[in-house]
Amino acid sequence: MTLRHNASPNQERAQRLAYASATVYGDHLDPTVWTTYFGIEPDISVVKGERFKTPSGRMSTYPGRTGVWGCTSKAAITEDNLDPHLKYLTLRLRLPRPDLPALLVNCGATMRFFCYWSNYTGDRVPVIDPTLRDAIESSGATIEIDEYPPRQ
């Protein structure tokens, strides 16, 4: 795994072919609850109905659609495959957590690992290590791959 620091957001955005985010959603989500639970500060935090700070540092034009608490691998991992990104996140969140599924249900929240997958060349196939997938799914979270295919 390659860790990368001190890279500007623009450089990261231009060079990234893959990254992932672990995010908890909920209309009544209290970010402080999840910050305490996971023991880390989130990279993104949104309270439903309030404007939020976007990754570029701007305040959003429209308020948040739902509550969001999440962390991302975009600024830390430079690999072009998903596994390093997912591994980074599972380590950071200390997954799997046996009590997490119940907590999600009690809070009326959902959790997903949202993966950016650039496939503009048309020859990239996303592959996820089964052990990582098991660790994520056993924690009550899902994996979604947002693929950007070649021009139609």
């Binding site: 955005r13 995010t23 993104i44 990754p55 659609r65 949202f114 950016y116 650039s118 503009y120 979604e144």
Partner: peptide, 20 residues
């Protein structure tokens, strides 16, 4: 440009809980 815009869409979907 197309790559930047795709990245922006992904971020928007992330913040607004949209599926791919």
């Amino acid at each position: 440009d197309r790559n930047t815009f795709g990245d922006m869409i992904h971020d928007l979907k992330h913040f607004f809980k949209l599926s791919p």
